[in-house]
Computed example of a mutant assay.
Amino acid sequence: MSAVEIPTAPRKPGDGVRLFGFTVGHVNMPIGFFLDGEPGEMRAPVTAFLIDHPKGLVLFDTGLGPRFVRPRGTQPDSFIDLEQGDTIDERLNAIGVDPAAIRWIITSHLHTDHAGGNAYFPNATVIVQEREYDHAFHNITDDPIYEISEYDLGQPFLKIHGEHDLFADGTIVIFPTLGHTPGHQSAKIRTDGGDIVLTGDCCSLKRSLDEFRLPNHCHDADQFLTSLKLLSSLERKGARVFPSHDPDFWATIPKVGPIG
């Protein structure tokens, strides 16, 4: 039995770890931001995931946060588009999950479109690679994608080094995928339907992995390419790799009920 029952998706006997996906806003960006040299523009979803584990509820990323919310029915005034009701706390409320029940937030990295909603979860511990924590708290200067007020909230941090098995049972394994930022990480989730890898911005689009294409910006290109090769290895072993910002891929993911 889940630590917190989800009214819209009650557990059945024998259910293991379950994964739910959410759209938490969009960003309108040049495609080259994700694939260096690629022309054109795209409307990319910002995504977050709820992991329903028998020992507690876990989030992977929290999407855009309250500073970007616009009233429903109005037009966005920037490339960031987050309508009222689309934040991660509202997405959870819609399926009957109280944000106060979230125990852990696995943060792929501390950019604003991945950690912006952390404030909605006062009882959660934030899991982050120590090198990402150090960079985000001590080494950023004028990088606007890090907004320290969104993650310096008094929540406890679990600063990890390398791979970390959250519940020591192989169901949620966090591992570094460096390159996009100094301490980027991804997570492999073992569901009844097989392994799913949540990539964060190590793999923004499916083409990033299929073509080993880097974005037009990254902290370390060599590390980034090594991380893509790791994801490719996991995919060859049967894991489903979920890119974080791919509108075509995201259109295939169930928005009601568990993914896996």
Rank of each mutant, 00 (worst) to 15 (best):
Q155A: 02
D143Q: 08
T23R: 14
S108R: 06
K206W: 07
I102V: 08
R103A: 11
R18A: 02
H180R: 14
G238K: 12
D165S: 05
H219W: 14
G183A: 10
L59F: 05
Q223S: 14
E163I: 10
D165K: 10
V128F: 03
D169R: 01
G40W: 09
R43E: 13
R213V: 11
Q129W: 05
A94T: 09
Q223V: 02
G257I: 00
A187N: 08
H26D: 15
I196R: 08
E147A: 06
S232W: 14
P258I: 01
F175Y: 12
P76G: 03
M42T: 15
I102F: 03
V17P: 04
R67H: 08
T141H: 15
Y120P: 02
A136F: 10
P71A: 13
I160K: 06
G117H: 02
S204M: 15
D143V: 06
P176N: 00
A94E: 09
I95D: 03
D210P: 13
D81W: 14
S186I: 05
G257C: 07
G260S: 02
V58W: 05
V17K: 00
M42Y: 09
V69M: 03
T181F: 05
S244E: 12
V241K: 11
D201K: 00
K237V: 09
D195I: 09
F242V: 07
F49N: 14
H217T: 11
E5Q: 12
D246P: 13
G193Q: 10
G260A: 04
P182D: 01
L110K: 00
Q155E: 02
I105D: 02
D201A: 02
H164I: 01
L198N: 05
P122A: 14
R72M: 05
M42N: 08
F22L: 10
S208A: 13
L178W: 13
H217C: 06
K12A: 09
L19K: 02
D246L: 11
V4S: 15
E130G: 12
S227W: 12
L82S: 00
P243Q: 02
Q129P: 11
N28Y: 10
P76V: 06
T252L: 10
T226Y: 14
P215G: 04
P10N: 00
L230Q: 11
P30Q: 10
F20D: 11
T181Q: 10
D134F: 06
D86I: 04
A101T: 08
R236P: 10
A124R: 02
A101F: 03
G183Y: 13
I145W: 04
I106V: 14
N28E: 13
E147I: 13
L198Q: 04
H26A: 10
P258L: 01
S186T: 11
F60Y: 15
H53A: 07
G14T: 04
F137M: 09
Q129H: 12
V58E: 01
H135A: 10
L158C: 14
V24M: 05
L57M: 11
G73M: 07
S208F: 03
T62V: 04
F33H: 14
L92V: 13
D98N: 15
G63M: 04
Q223C: 12
P66W: 04
G162T: 12
G200S: 04
F22V: 01
A9Y: 13
G21Q: 08
R91D: 01
T177H: 08
D52W: 03
